[in-house]
């Protein structure tokens, strides 16, 4: 598996890391965008989107727990396009863990981060008027609500991440 986002003339690869307390949610996210998600082991979910014969987008879903931080963290962190931090909007119990994860990423990485609150099948808590464009807190981070069960919603998250990258480029 080629972790490097390099232009070696054969294959260019972009990587996005999805982080959430639930491997199931990682799988749902990746499945929504890639149509197929594969569990590499109990901690990592993987999905691949082929853009054309020379360009692919890889998704890695990992959990919050420390054991999963050992996933070549610093190597991947330098080359990854960005991160999506997923959490269940209605789960107050895991809210502090989500905050911890975001603090960790905000301290350590420079890549864009999209924080995505999954509202599941419930109505959006506040009008989509606020959240359609997302709320941008800094050049690096943006908050959005989403529904993991809706492909369009998950696509919006990835598009926002790409937009954050494109905006940074000359």
């Amino acid at each position: 598996m080629n972790y490097l986002n390099s232009t070696n003339g054969t294959q260019k690869i972009g990587e996005i890391i999805i982080v959430s307390p639930s491997n199931d949610d990682n799988r749902k996210f990746i499945q929504a965008i890639c149509r197929q998600a594969v569990s590499v082991d109990h901690a990592v979910t993987y999905g691949e989107m082929e853009i054309n014969e020379n360009l692919s987008l890889y998704f890695y879903g990992i959990g919050y727990k420390r054991s999963q931080y050992n996933f070549a963290w610093e190597l991947v962190a330098k080359k990854v396009l960005g991160y999506v931090v997923l959490f269940n909007w209605f789960d107050d119990v895991l809210f502090p863990e989500t905050k911890e994860m975001i603090d960790f990423l905000a301290l350590r990485v420079e890549a864009p981060i999209i924080i995505a609150g999954d509202v599941q099948d419930h109505p959006f808590p506040v009008g989509q008027r606020i959240f359609q464009p997302g709320i941008t807190f800094s050049r690096q981070t943006k908050f959005m609500l989403c529904r993991l069960s809706e492909r369009t919603s998950v696509k919006k998250i990835v598009i926002s991440l790409l937009d954050a990258l494109i905006d940074q480029m000359p």
Binding site: K12, M49, I51, L55, E74, A77, K155, L162, I166, Q168
Partner: peptide, 29 residues
Amino acid sequence: PSGRNHQSRLAHRIYLSRGDLMLIRQHIL
């Protein structure tokens, strides 16, 4: 420490071009 400055953030470099990112974006849409 593994030789890096742990107080500093990990540098981020985008290896794909703007064109590549636009292509990915278009594909997803």
